[in-house]
Design a protein around this nucleic acid. Structure first.
Lengths: 188, 188
DNA sequence: CGGTTCCTAGAACGGTCGTTCTATGAATAC
DNA sequence: GTATTCATAGAACGACCGTTCTAGGAACCG
């Protein structure tokens, strides 16, 4: 006798809705009851599928990490890869997702207990993508340094943009940085 | 009859201790009771001096803004000003403060209700300082663009550093950016 | 069909939260 | 001195939190 099989699709469906709720309603107001009310189910249902608040959080963080991962794509050099990443990240469609991203990031900096994996993984995800975009010609240390700078610029400009910064000003700064990337002109 | 005068020094003292508590214990665990226990007073004392949780939050945010403001200083050009800001911000002594800063920043992105002033003010504080460092020779639009980029780089690299990023890698990225700032070499 | 396991819901528990009420010393003005 | 206001504390209230208990339908296997 095996009984009724586990419905993994249902769990994924609830998780997606939970992430959407966190994106729309804010990371600080995450509770069993608020999510359940938003999805039209009972808190018991959520508890049954995710177990603990911390486990739900881990699941949400995993989904969020997938959503904020840059499309690896195939780009000839670092400059075009960086431009593609910036265009994708800075699109208004992504704003709510990245607001959630930075809310989680900020919370993780002060309370790394349930977020440690998120911080670590997020740190290597983008870096790996942008290091790979430089091919094997440049030495690893230089590639790592450049990728770090590109990630920092994109995140910093995103912070400015999401906080209500002037779009043309931020885009101008991004363009000037990307232009400098295209012609290294003696840069390290 | 006027009675006993208001003790503003006591309020400032409590506020400083509250900010220190938020820096050490984390922004998410801010409550009347936890702060009161940490300071060795009763919650009633805090309520008496600050009124509402939201008013306490505003006061803490104001103090935090002061603490994260870069020392304006007198620097000959943007590159040296940027380097000074980076050296000051990236010092381990400042890490807890900036962890709190980014925790507040992230929370503000999703719930701007009590944080709107913080986001706005923080946006113009650094930008103004770094625009002023460029003097009046460069046209305002270019100066604004460059200041935006410098702020983004510093914030982005700080995020990396505070998340546990390798110090030498982050410092290398900072150095390469600052070097590029010194010799604009055709950059806009 | 019966048996077993999953899915869902409602109620309740202990805990923490922000806030308010009441009351007791301390400091100032007259 | 008295009168008034501030400073502080303790207790309590209602609301929300995560979690657990109980229980009833639903889906699969034999």
């Amino acid at each position: 006798m095996v009984g009724r099989p586990v419905d993994l699709r249902r769990r994924a469906e609830l998780l997606d809705a939970a992430v959407e709720h966190a994106t729309a309603q804010g990371f600080a107001e995450l509770s069993w009851r608020s999510i359940a009310a938003s999805l039209g189910v009972s808190t018991t249902t959520l508890v049954h599928h995710f177990g603990t608040k911390e486990q739900l959080l881990e699941a949400i963080l995993g989904r969020l990490r997938e959503r904020t991962e840059v499309a690896a794509g195939e780009h000839p050099d670092l400059a075009s890869a960086a431009r593609a990443v910036w265009v994708w990240c800075s699109h208004p469609r992504q704003w709510p997702t990245f607001k959630l991203f930075f809310a989680v990031y900020g919370a993780a900096l002060q309370a790394p207990e349930p977020f440690a994996g998120f911080l670590d993984q997020v740190g290597v995800d983008w870096l790996g993508t942008l290091r790979a975009a430089q091919g094997t010609a440049v030495d690893p240390q230089t590639a790592s340094r450049r990728a770090t700078l590109v990630v920092a610029v994109i995140r910093g400009l995103l912070l400015d943009l999401l906080a209500g910064g002037d779009r043309t000003r931020v885009d101008g700064a991004a363009e000037s940085f990307l232009a400098g990337l295209s012609e290294p002109c003696g840069g390290p």
